[in-house]
Structure formats: C-alpha cells, structure tokens
C-alpha cells in the first residue's frame, strides 16, 4: 500500500502547489506559485495539528530525488548554444564571484551577531 500512500501524498502537495499558482494568478503577484504553496503548507503545519509526518513518504521521495525532476529542464541546454559564448563565460565568472560575496557576507554577518549575543548573555 506504500505506492498508494506516495501517490496520495504527492497529490496533497500538488493541491498546495495549484492553490499557490491560483493565488499568484488572482492577485497578480510576481512571486512564484510554488513558493506561495510552500508558505501555505508551512502555515498549515504551524497553525493546525498537521505534521510533516502525514506526507512523509511523498515529500521524502520528491526531495530525495530532486535532480531527476530537473534533468529534463537542464537537458534543454541542448537548444541553448548561446551559453558557449564569450558573454556566457563572462557571466559564469560573474556568478562565481557573486557566490563568493554572498557566502562571505552572509556568514560574516551571522557570526558577528551570534558573537554579540553570546557576549551580551555572559
């Protein structure tokens, strides 16, 4: 009956996804419907007695195999030859540098605040 449960769990996740997409459409929001659906599910966990255990099999399967789900999309690079250009190489470098900046500043700020709070407590 495991397959049956997995299907039900994924259908529940779909229901939240489509609700998110619907809200996005109705309110004309620029935020992706998937993120709205995620926040909605989070709200249900917080404000009701529902827990992630209820949909564990389905959510675990999807989260554990995420790369499979975007393989068809990344294979779309086959029709994006423009990535293999000077601009493409420049932007790959830019993304790499930006990643260093995000990582360095994010960590530094949080460590600074963590230290400050610990000193405050002592």
């Amino acid at each position: 009956m495991n397959v049956f449960r997995i299907v039900i769990h994924i259908l529940i996740l779909y229901a939240f996804y489509w609700t998110g997409v619907w809200i996005q459409g109705v309110l004309q929001l620029p935020i992706p419907g998937s993120i709205l659906g995620m926040l909605l599910l989070l709200a249900v966990f917080i404000f009701t007695s529902a827990t992630p255990k209820w949909i564990q099999e389905g959510s675990g399967l999807l989260l554990g195999n995420m790369p499979l789900l975007f393989l068809p999309v990344t294979a779309g690079l086959v029709i994006h030859g423009e990535l293999f250009s000077v601009l493409g190489a420049v932007l790959v470098t830019a993304v790499f540098i930006s990643t260093l900046l995000v990582m360095g500043t994010g960590s530094w700020v949080s460590q600074y605040l963590l230290k400050k709070r610990r000193e405050h407590r002592e």
Binding site: F16, G33, S34, L41, F45, P52, L63, L69, P72, A75
Partner: peptide, 23 residues
C-alpha cells in the same frame, strides 16, 4: 519533452515539500 514534461511537472510539488524540512 513530450515525456520530460511529466517529470518536470513534479517540480512544483517538490518545492512545496520544502516546507517539511523547514518546519
């Protein structure tokens, strides 16, 4: 993509599922 789109369509629910580890 006639087949690939079916796999891709699971991405939406997968993002929703991120609420579980976060919670």
């Amino acid at each position: 993509m006639t087949g690939g789109q079916w796999i891709e369509s699971l991405l939406g629910p997968a993002v929703v599922a991120l609420a579980c580890p976060l919670y």
